[in-house]
Design a protein around this nucleic acid. Structure first.
Length: 189
DNA sequence: GCTAGGCAGGAACCCCTCCTCCCCT
């Protein structure tokens, strides 16, 4: 099973009012993380970066001012994904709606892509726990994020890939059998 | 300064519905 673990940084929580400013992804093949097969791009927003977003993510105007426009960035991301299954943390309610809204806004034709929400892996693994944030998952798995910046998509996606690998293993699922039902997302064609 | 929305779990109630919280930047 070929997985592409991805993460977005945005200017806020609402796909309708906010914009994607960074996309990062890493490929996982048969349960092995391919650290050299990664995708990273900043995305140029139409509106100025809010100060609190720069503080949170470390992303500055200098990072995004000459970055690809959203449609070019998403098309490149879609080519990187290919026929793989997408994975994101809370992607069903956050990352995928942002991608879909961006496609609609830029009138990009879309294709369906299989998708796994790592939130579902966490809820299945620690069903008695209420908190399933990325930080909680990292803490429970005792993962180190030394040298990786949280809230930078490049750092988050590497931590998430490790987390997915561990949760998958702990759930006792073989690398080619997803332990939770597959969902569907959209990417530009 | 505002902004989403589907899910899980609990209360109240006997099987659903409603409510609140969660989760992402």
């Amino acid at each position: 099973m070929e997985l592409v673990i991805f993460d977005l940084e945005t200017t806020g929580f609402s796909p309708r009012y906010h914009e994607i400013i960074q996309i990062a992804a890493v490929r996982m093949h048969h349960g092995k993380i391919k650290t050299k097969e990664c995708f990273e791009t900043f995305v140029r927003p139409k509106n100025p970066l809010p100060d609190e977003i720069s503080e949170l993510t470390g992303i500055t105007y200098g990072d995004v001012c000459n970055a690809p426009e959203p449609s070019a960035a998403l098309m490149a991301f879609s080519r990187f994904v290919g026929d793989a299954t997408l994975v994101a943390h809370n992607g069903r309610c956050f990352d995928l709606p942002f991608v879909r809204e961006c496609c609609l806004r830029h009138q990009l034709p879309m294709r369906e892509v299989p998708f796994i929400d790592s939130l579902a892996l966490s809820r299945l693994l620690w069903s008695s726990q209420r908190c399933h944030t990325m930080d909680a998952v990292i803490r429970r798995l005792r993962l180190s994020h030394e040298g990786l910046r949280r809230h930078d998509a490049r750092g988050d996606v590497r931590i998430l890939a490790e987390a997915v690998r561990h949760m998958w293993k702990r759930l006792g699922a073989p690398p080619d059998h997803c332990p939770v039902p597959l969902d569907v997302g959209h990417l530009p064609r």
